[in-house]
Design a binder for these strands. Structure first.
Lengths: 206, 206
DNA sequence: TTGACAAACTAACAGTTGTTAGGTATGCTC
DNA sequence: GAGCATACCTAACAACTGTTAGTTTGTCAA
């Protein structure tokens, strides 16, 4: 009755993402979203041009977030220093736990997993998020570490791919299902990734 | 008019899989399927109990195919012999090209990629198909090769995980999108995987 | 008090959805 | 040729879909 919070639009977006990530965009109806938000169907059209506009807004924001992340990475790059093995492992594990499993990002990844099958923009974003961006970043990290003599001479790109392959492997193996992520899965994943990264470290660091 | 081919049921299943793999089960209507098959909606209910029965039949068959593959692997295991590096690489590349990219399997994987997000049976099948089954198989392969002295002493399970991580990484990086698989992507993927497997071979084989 | 705006509402539209009841043409068996 | 199973059909249902037109409400500036 009262003019609601000026962030109804945000609530719609959050709810939509919630539903999209498990059911997929086209399965979710506007009425499904509205039932949860607590408004009538027609009210959505005050905030969005149409249903697709909701999806596009989510994709656009995720895209913006990705490029922002990209630039952030670039800045903090020169900080790369020699790290002990435990610290190297901790970075990898927390990349999964703090980044990929962070609530919002995780939902976006899950939504993209569905939408990429038929939406090219979603497919591009998915690839950037899980492959291009992290591999590029790791390439530079290893490249710097090589120059400083912490990592033995090799191709930084290839090492970065091997690194990212391990991350993706563990992430997907433990968190790609339909069940909500349990603390059991979390610790199993951390354990497996630790083991793999330990070997990775011993192979390339000196 | 004439009593059609007794394999209308199969055509329905094929068509359904075709549509499910890009659009997802719940987005595809029975009428969508029928329009392509060339029958009326009601005819579907002669062959299937309801819409879900179509999905379940596909899942069931894929599941049967997986366990059959599992047993087939077990038989051919003892054949493992010393392989030159080129042959080892060729096996990995053709695993992607002949197995994962094989038309039907590829469609199933794409469908499962969507359905796993909310269907537990699909999630289980997906995991078995891309993680459990191949890793188990590779574990045994490496284990035998170790006993025969072709591969240096190490944990077969972990080596198998590292191997499978590379396969999954390349497969997803090049073939997870919305575009049909091009021969460009095929050769890029083969090239990247070759490079990664070459290094893998040099690391563990002796 | 008035007017303007934001943000919701009611009510309806035309089309689509899964599903069912009942009918029809074909070919096989007795 | 009668009976019957197979494999399709027509027609309809109730529910749900995205979307629109027009209306109401609360808030604030003039």
């Amino acid at each position: 009755m009262s003019p609601t919070d000026k962030n109804t639009k945000e609530i719609i977006l959050d709810t939509a993402l919630d539903l999209f990530q498990t059911n997929g965009y086209s399965t979710v109806s506007i009425r499904d979203i509205c039932k949860i938000v607590g408004i009538k169907e027609s009210s959505v059209y005050y905030h969005f041009k149409n249903k697709e506009d909701i999806l596009n807004t989510i994709l656009l924001r995720a895209g913006a977030w990705v490029t922002e992340k990209k630039n952030r990475f670039r800045e903090t790059l020169e900080a790369s220093v020699r790290v002990p093995r435990e610290a190297f492992i901790a970075v990898g594990v927390s990349y999964i736990e703090k980044c990929l499993l962070e609530e919002k990002i995780f939902k976006v990844i899950r939504m993209l997993t569905i939408e990429k099958q038929r939406n090219e923009a979603a497919a591009d974003l998915y690839n950037e998020l899980l492959f291009t961006l992290p591999t590029e970043h790791q390439t530079q990290v290893f490249s710097i570490m090589m120059k400083k003599g912490f990592v033995r001479e090799d191709s930084p790109e290839v090492i970065a791919s091997e690194y990212q392959a391990l991350i993706i492997f563990v992430f997907q193996k433990y968190f790609s299902g339909s069940k909500p992520i349990s603390s059991d899965a979390r610790s199993s994943a951390a354990q497996e990734l630790s083991l793999l990264l330990k070997r990775f470290y011993d192979r390339y660091f000196q």
